Amino acid sequence: MSNSQMFTHINGELGLIVLESCKELGEKINEHIKARRKVEGNFLLPAREIRFSNGEGKVKLTESVRGKDIYILCDIGNYSCTYSMFGIENHKGPDEHFQDIKRTVSAIRGKARRITVIMPLLYESRQHRRKGRESLDCALALQELERLGVQEILTFDAHDPNVQNAIPLLSFENLYPTYDILKTIITEEKNIEIHKDNMLVISPDTGAMDRAIYYSSVLGVDVGLFYKRRDHSTIVNGKNPIVKHEYMGRDVENQDVLIVDDMIASGESVLDIAKELKSRKAGNVYIATTFAFFTEGLKKFQEYYDNGIITRVYSTNLTYISPELEKAEWFKRVDMSEFIARIINRLNKDQSIAKFMDATYVIQELLENKVSK
Score class of each variant (00 low, 15 high):
205 D>E: 09
205 D>I: 08
206 T>I: 14
206 T>V: 14
206 T>M: 13
207 G>R: 10
208 A>Q: 02
209 M>Y: 15
209 M>F: 15
210 D>E: 06
211 R>I: 10
211 R>L: 15
211 R>H: 15
212 A>R: 02
213 I>D: 12
213 I>R: 07
215 Y>M: 10
215 Y>G: 05
216 S>P: 02
217 S>H: 11
217 S>M: 08
217 S>I: 05
218 V>M: 10
221 V>N: 04
221 V>R: 00
221 V>L: 13
221 V>W: 07
221 V>I: 13
222 D>Y: 06
222 D>Q: 08
222 D>R: 05
223 V>L: 07
224 G>F: 04
224 G>E: 02
227 Y>D: 08
228 K>Y: 04
229 R>V: 05
229 R>M: 02
230 R>V: 11
231 D>R: 00
233 S>Y: 05
234 T>W: 06
237 N>D: 14
239 K>Y: 10
239 K>V: 09
241 P>W: 00
241 P>Y: 01
242 I>F: 04
242 I>E: 02
242 I>N: 01
243 V>W: 01
245 H>R: 03
245 H>W: 07
246 E>L: 13
247 Y>P: 03
248 M>W: 15
248 M>D: 15
249 G>A: 11
250 R>G: 14
250 R>L: 14
250 R>T: 15
251 D>S: 12
253 E>I: 14
253 E>C: 14
253 E>W: 05
253 E>K: 15
255 Q>H: 14
255 Q>C: 13
257 V>C: 03
258 L>V: 04
259 I>P: 00
259 I>C: 05
261 D>I: 11
261 D>N: 11
262 D>A: 07
263 M>R: 01
264 I>H: 05
265 A>D: 13
265 A>E: 14
266 S>K: 06
266 S>C: 10
267 G>P: 06
267 G>L: 01
268 E>V: 06
271 L>F: 00
272 D>F: 06
273 I>T: 00
274 A>E: 03
276 E>V: 03
277 L>K: 00
277 L>F: 02
279 S>I: 12
280 R>L: 15
280 R>W: 10
280 R>Y: 09
281 K>C: 12
281 K>L: 13
281 K>P: 07
282 A>I: 06
283 G>A: 08
286 Y>C: 03
289 T>P: 03
289 T>R: 00
290 T>F: 11
291 F>R: 03
291 F>G: 01
293 F>G: 01
293 F>V: 04
294 F>R: 12
294 F>V: 11
295 T>E: 09
295 T>C: 07
296 E>F: 14
296 E>C: 11
296 E>I: 13
297 G>I: 08
300 K>C: 09
300 K>T: 12
302 Q>K: 07
304 Y>C: 06
306 D>A: 14
307 N>I: 02
307 N>A: 12
308 G>V: 05
309 I>F: 00
312 R>K: 15
312 R>G: 02
312 R>L: 11
313 V>S: 01
314 Y>F: 15
315 S>M: 10
316 T>E: 13
316 T>M: 13
317 N>I: 11
317 N>E: 14
318 L>F: 14
318 L>T: 11
318 L>Y: 10
319 T>E: 12
321 I>P: 00
321 I>W: 00
322 S>F: 09
323 P>S: 00
324 E>A: 08
325 L>D: 01
326 E>H: 07
326 E>C: 04
327 K>I: 07
327 K>M: 09
328 A>S: 12
328 A>F: 09
330 W>I: 02
332 K>R: 12
333 R>N: 13
334 V>L: 09
335 D>Y: 11
335 D>I: 07
336 M>V: 13
337 S>F: 00
